[in-house]
């Protein structure tokens, strides 16, 4: 009994899901045995307390004007060893050390992704081709690229060696998983296998859930 009680409370992550009111967003992040999601709706006076949470999720289609307003809080949150997932185009400078930049200089037909070092196995369990091609067409997933922080792990780079998926464990004491836009999600649909985007996200969640989380140790 004591063991299971301990296991539950050390593995369950508390995540804050940032929402700017997009229709259906909550359906993509469903609480499960590893994560409990609390949705934070952005208002004019957006100023959430991040510290009760282990993980901050800034999903596709987010409000990066609002996120810029709390950039110091995000840095402090990560400084306390917490984690951030941002899978959207953060055109404002609120992610410590890393910047997303839009770019349309290359044709999507030429987009391919190439794996880099992956110490935590975040790219395991899915076929990289699924991120490159959809219905035989390439370039459907990521938009723009990331100017990665020095020392950050570039998990995927594109045809032009630009970072597309980055794990940054060096800029702050926390862990940051970034993708150059494109929706990640934490949901399994009945009768369907998980998509590459869900698997990538859940691989990161598993890394977090098997690590010591400062909020709960």
């Amino acid at each position: 009994m004591t063991f299971w009680f301990y296991l539950f409370f050390t593995l369950m992550l508390q995540a804050l899901l940032i929402s700017n009111g997009l229709v259906g967003l909550d359906n993509y992040y469903v609480s499960n045995e590893l994560v409990h999601y609390t949705t934070c709706l952005i208002t004019k006076d957006f100023n959430p307390d991040l510290m009760p949470y282990d993980l901050l999720v800034v999903p596709n289609g987010s409000d990066h004007v609002a996120m810029l307003k709390i950039k110091d809080k995000v840095r402090a949150f990560l400084g306390a060893g917490r984690a951030l997932v941002c899978c959207d185009g953060w055109f404002t400078a609120w992610v410590p050390g890393n910047q997303w930049v839009m770019d349309n200089a290359h044709r999507t037909q030429a987009v391919r992704y190439f794996p880099g070092p992956d110490r935590h196995g975040l790219l395991q369990g899915f076929d990289l081709e699924d991120l490159i091609f959809s219905h035989g067409m390439s370039g459907w997933w990521a938009c723009g690229y990331i100017r990665a922080a020095p020392g950050a792990e570039v998990l995927l780079a594109d045809t032009w060696q630009r970072p597309i998926v980055v794990l940054d464990e060096t800029t702050t004491a926390g862990r940051v998983l970034l993708t150059a836009s494109g929706p990640l999600a934490d949901v399994t649909y009945a009768g369907q296998s998980d998509s590459a985007l869900v698997t990538l996200y859940r691989n990161f969640i598993r890394v977090l859930s098997t690590s010591k989380i400062p909020a709960h140790v």
Partner: peptide, 10 residues
Amino acid sequence: IFNGVWSHYA
């Protein structure tokens, strides 16, 4: 009318 979304901004 801008919801802070990157595609609007782009």
